[in-house]
Amino acid sequence: MIGYRTLNEYFGDIELPLSIEEILDYEHRLDGSDLEFVDSANRFLKAYESYDTYRHQNAHCIGTCLTNLTRVGMYFLLEEELITVSTSNLRPIDEDTEWEVTHYPFKEMTELDMQLIEYTNEADHEAGTLYIKLLNDKENERTYVLRNLNQKHFQCFRDFHQSSIEKKYV
């Protein structure tokens, strides 16, 4: 099991923006299951079929999250989308870990809402929940929920989403 707070504090200390490629090549100073998690996610992203399309894009925020109740992941806030790379949190992380990449393009978002877990403060690095409404390929809205986010990134999410909305209407 990874330490959300430890990883979110660690990622929060990395000087951003950096390209995805620079982040994946970054020498992480972690140990134990946290290092295994990050290294495994990085290996998967480098081998991911669409890697070349976003490897030079800058990440403005990085953190960990639960993509649903059984999947743990990392998120990368890019200028035009939020990307998560996730795996099962019910299995140990090793060479055979199955990962999944999910793209949340801002241009397809109809709504973005954020909530803090009650009785938490800004020092809690895993206290945020993000609700994303996206239009799917059939033009229907679908809601996605990301939990245990670093709440310090909420303003970045808002800013990039707002910028995307303004670009839509210009």
Rank of each mutant, 00 (worst) to 15 (best):
N58G: 04
R142G: 15
M114W: 04
L130Y: 13
N58Y: 07
C156W: 08
E166R: 09
Y51W: 07
V72D: 07
F76P: 03
N148P: 11
Y26P: 02
Q57S: 08
A41C: 10
F37V: 05
N89A: 13
R5D: 15
E49K: 15
Y131S: 15
E111S: 12
Q155V: 14
N150K: 00
E27M: 15
Y26C: 12
H60P: 05
L146K: 01
K107M: 05
S40W: 08
E36D: 14
T6Y: 12
R43S: 07
E139Y: 15
Y51V: 05
Y10G: 05
R55H: 06
C156N: 15
A41S: 08
L69K: 08
K46P: 13
R147N: 14
A127S: 00
V85E: 03
L77I: 01
R5M: 02
C61M: 11
S86A: 11
F157D: 05
Q155R: 13
D25R: 00
Y75K: 08
Y119S: 15
E111F: 12
L16H: 06
T67R: 02
W99K: 03
D25T: 06
G3E: 15
L116V: 12
E80G: 11
G3D: 14
E111K: 15
Q57P: 01
T120P: 14
Y119K: 13
D13L: 11
F106Y: 11
V38E: 00
N136E: 08
L116K: 13
H153Q: 04
N136H: 12
L18C: 05
D137S: 14
H153N: 13
L35A: 15
A41L: 00
E122P: 11
F106V: 06
V170K: 06
L77M: 00
C65S: 01
E166A: 00
H28V: 13
K167Q: 06
Q151S: 08
S86I: 10
Q155H: 15
I132H: 01
Y48V: 14
I117L: 15
N42P: 06
L18P: 07
F157R: 06
L7R: 02
I62C: 04
Q151D: 03
Y54I: 10
D124F: 13
T102D: 03
E100F: 09
T70L: 01
A59E: 10
N136F: 05
N150E: 06
I14A: 07
I20R: 00
E22C: 10
L30W: 06
T84L: 04
R158W: 07
F37Y: 02
Y75L: 04
L24V: 02
H153F: 11
F44S: 01
S163V: 09
W99R: 03
V170R: 14
L24A: 12
D94A: 15
T97G: 03
E118Q: 12
A41Q: 08
M1G: 09
L146E: 01
S163G: 12
Y51T: 02
H103W: 10
E36S: 10
D124N: 12
L134N: 09
L90Q: 09
I14W: 04
T143N: 11
F157N: 06
L78R: 04
L130V: 13
D124I: 03
Y4K: 10
C61I: 06
F160Y: 06
H125F: 15
Y54D: 06
V72G: 03
D13V: 09
L18H: 05
H103R: 13
Y54A: 07
R142H: 09
